[in-house]
């Protein structure tokens, strides 16, 4: 087979170094899952630190968790679960070739992501910054959190909030990265770049988004529901 013929046979989506579309798709799927395995270990380090300190300071955990609002956390959980659902629907619409609904699904996902981060900032981070729950020099619970000031082990309480900010912050940072990718995917959807022949990028972004959701599924009971 001459190289010209070989080239003509190849799908335009097939990269030069793969022999077949199947090989390419399986490779990319494995690559994506390895990336997620890497992410599991990345967040896993934080969860290990969390576990050690929860084991060492159960009282501080109870006290700190009491200062977090189950209502706000619960609402955000719903928001995130629905955004995961809309992302999954996006994959479905892409697979059946409905670009219009794919775009809508991505838009809903992005919107819900924004809602999550907005709620997080407005009702969780900002009040805590303002009322002395940020570990470090500014530490000194007051206002709504005045109760915490009387807790004996302020150091352990700071460790709780340190982990709270780092873990939810790292989670929110992953969402911000997701927003950027979502916008890119939406532009590409408008340009009709995706369809039943080419849904892998949507599927992979979906995997990432669901992973971020899973992290929250663990963060929610670990921080908000300590009893």
């Amino acid at each position: 087979m001459s190289s010209a013929e070989a080239k003509a046979d190849r799908s335009p989506y097939l990269a030069h170094h793969f022999e077949s579309i199947e090989q390419q798709e399986e490779s990319c799927t494995l690559g994506m899952w390895l990336f997620l395995a890497q992410e599991v270990m990345f967040f896993g380090g934080l969860f290990m630190a969390y576990a050690v300190y929860r084991y060492m300071y159960p009282d501080a955990w109870l006290e700190g968790s009491g200062a977090l609002s189950i209502k706000i956390g619960g609402i955000n959980t719903v928001v995130l679960l629905v955004s995961s659902f809309s992302m999954a629907m996006g994959v479905y619409y892409c697979q059946i070739g409905n670009s219009k609904n794919l775009f809508r699904a991505l838009l809903v996902t992005l919107f819900l992501g924004f809602v999550f981060v907005a709620i997080k900032l407005k009702f969780e981070y900002f009040p805590k910054f303002a009322e002395g729950l940020f570990p470090g020099d500014g530490w000194g619970p007051h206002g709504h959190y005045a109760d915490l000031a009387s807790f004996g082990d302020q150091g352990a309480l700071q460790i709780f909030f340190f982990l709270y900010f780092v873990m939810t912050g790292m989670h929110a940072f992953h969402m911000l990265i997701g927003f950027v990718i979502l916008v890119v995917l939406m532009v590409m959807t408008k340009q009709n770049k995706f369809g039943p022949q080419r849904f892998m990028p949507i599927l992979f972004f979906g995997l990432y988004w669901h992973f971020v959701d899973i992290v929250w599924v663990f963060i929610f009971p670990m921080f908000y529901l300590v009893t």
Partner: peptide, 22 residues
């Protein structure tokens, strides 16, 4: 393995900035 050291040194970096840490 590598992601674990990444998050570990990340925590060290945060501790350097915030002045406190775990």
């Amino acid at each position: 393995g590598t992601p674990v050291v990444a998050i570990t040194v990340f925590l060290v970096g945060v501790e350097r900035i915030w002045g406190v840490g775990i």
